[in-house]
């Protein structure tokens, strides 16, 4: 299994000019894809945007015998308004989310997260499903989807199941999905009342993965917090919700003091490690700072 963060490039294994050999399969339907996944199991990998998978294959980290491309499956590429939620096909490009007025208006934190990802080329290639299925603790779409309490639809040999995103990630590079299952849709519930949301990411340079990221979704009743959701990336084995911080903030007035008290709570809730991008100490310290920044941004968006 993959370790996180990804292994450094091994010069003995790496040949970034030529991919190891594999057989390319391009099913036309979800059912056909699931059949192929059931048939080939561990030997197969699903190819969506390829911005992560092909890099790891070049580096010799992964050597699948079969690549099952889902890029020819039309039924996986859409953004639909379904009344109480917005449905996003798993193979929808990040760029399509970036350009969607629906996403921009309803889910600003998700919109910001997508805009922060890679360069325009990467966003033209990468998909929301790929970002989630790689299950990186640094997956940028994860914190916003966690605070909006999204659900994912997973197709398998026995039909489809719906899993809350809060239960989707099980470890670095690991999800609840079985080898013969395919992520087909992400459902993001529309906020029922005015909600302010924000996403903040700290990275070394614009193109890099996050050292740390945060999303908040905030609902106010008069001067007090009616409801708040907080989620962070790159501070634990999986993207995580900060439930204790949320509980502390509920029913309180969002004064400077209260926010900084919440910052101290979130610092005890995160479980960061030191890796190539940052140190545990830095991540812990900054988790509090970006919580305050994100809460202020969310309040601003509520017109406060």
């Amino acid at each position: 299994m993959l370790k996180s963060p990804g292994p450094r490039l091994d010069p003995n294994k790496a040949n970034t000019h030529i991919l190891p050999e594999f057989e390319y399969l391009a099913p036309r339907t979800v059912e056909e894809t699931v059949e192929l996944l059931s048939k080939y199991g561990e030997e197969a990998k699903v190819l969506a945007g390829g911005t992560d998978l092909l890099v790891r294959m070049k580096q010799g980290v992964l050597r699948p015998k079969y690549l099952i491309s889902i890029n020819r499956i039309k039924e996986l590429n859409y953004i639909k308004d379904r009344g109480d939620h917005v449905a996003i096909g798993a193979a929808t490009k990040l760029r399509a989310l970036e350009k969607s007025d629906l996403i921009k208006e309803l889910f600003p934190a998700l919109h910001e997260a997508v805009r922060s990802m890679g360069g325009v080329q990467i966003r033209n290639m990468g998909t929301i499903g790929g970002n989630l299925c790689n299950a990186s603790p640094a997956a940028d779409t994860a914190p916003p989807l966690l605070v909006f309490e999204a659900e994912v639809v997973i197709a398998g040999p026995n039909g489809r199941r719906v899993v809350p995103i809060t239960q989707f990630f099980t470890g670095p590079g690991k999800t609840v999905m079985a080898r013969n299952e395919l992520l087909v849709e992400v459902r993001v519930p529309k906020p029922v009342k005015p909600t302010g949301s924000a996403f903040i990411k700290i990275a070394r340079v614009a193109m890099d993965l996050a050292k740390i990221s945060i999303a908040v979704a905030l609902r106010m009743n008069g001067n007090v917090v009616e409801d708040v959701k907080v989620a962070l990336g790159s501070v634990a084995p999986t993207p995580m919700r900060a439930y204790r911080t949320e509980e502390f903030l509920k029913g309180k007035e969002l004064t400077e003091d209260v926010m900084w008290e919440a910052a101290n709570i979130v610092r005890t809730e995160v479980k960061p490690i030191t890796d190539i991008r940052s140190t545990a100490e830095y991540r812990r310290e900054v988790s509090g700072v970006i919580l305050v920044d994100a809460l202020k941004k969310a309040m601003e968006r509520l017109g406060r």
Binding site: T16, Y24, A26, L47, G50, T51, L54, V55, L67, S69, R95, V120, Q121, I122, N124, M125
Partner: peptide
């Protein structure tokens, strides 16, 4: 649309 040809399969 701009994409990366070193991470795109010809097929």
């Amino acid at each position: 649309e701009p994409v990366l040809s070193c991470l795109t399969l010809a097929v």
